[in-house]
């Protein structure tokens, strides 16, 4: 595969749950998708579903939280928080997870995944 800029439709907007997460499977990669309502705006985030600390595919089942202006998800296993826009772990300096570009096109949720 050479084209790495394609946007792939993964699901419909109605599949997402407000202020919570769901998980999509793309090329055998598990990606957690979040819809955050913030001050009347809706924001979408996509991060790896793998919790590198708990070592399980569970991040979509975590609780969303704000830490100052940062929006993060707390792992349901051991509660470490991961920033949804950068993937950095707020509770452990040396851990970062992958984040993916995500957008909404006519109610279709699209991800940009490098092949």
């Amino acid at each position: 595969m050479t084209n790495s800029t394609n946007w792939i439709t993964v699901c419909q907007e109605s599949d997402l749950v407000a202020n919570s997460g769901v998980c999509a499977l793309i090329n055998e990669q598990q990606i957690a998708l979040f819809k955050v309502k913030n001050a009347g705006q809706e924001q979408l985030f996509a991060i790896s579903n793998w919790d590198p600390i708990g070592e399980a595919n569970v991040l979509y089942r975590g609780l969303l939280c704000s830490v100052g202006d940062t929006v993060a998800v707390a792992s349901p296993l051991y509660k470490q928080r991961f920033c949804l826009s950068s993937g950095t772990c707020l509770d452990s300096d040396d851990v970062t997870i992958k984040v993916y570009p995500i957008r909404l096109e006519n109610q279709a949720v699209q991800l940009q995944v490098s092949q």
Binding site: V17, A18, N19, S20, G54, A56, N57, V58, R61, G62, L63, L64, P76, L77
Partner: peptide
Amino acid sequence: SLQDTNDTYLGNMQKDG
């Protein structure tokens, strides 16, 4: 969206999810 994962999925999450 407020519930801890155990409450959300009405079960106790174990180490492997």
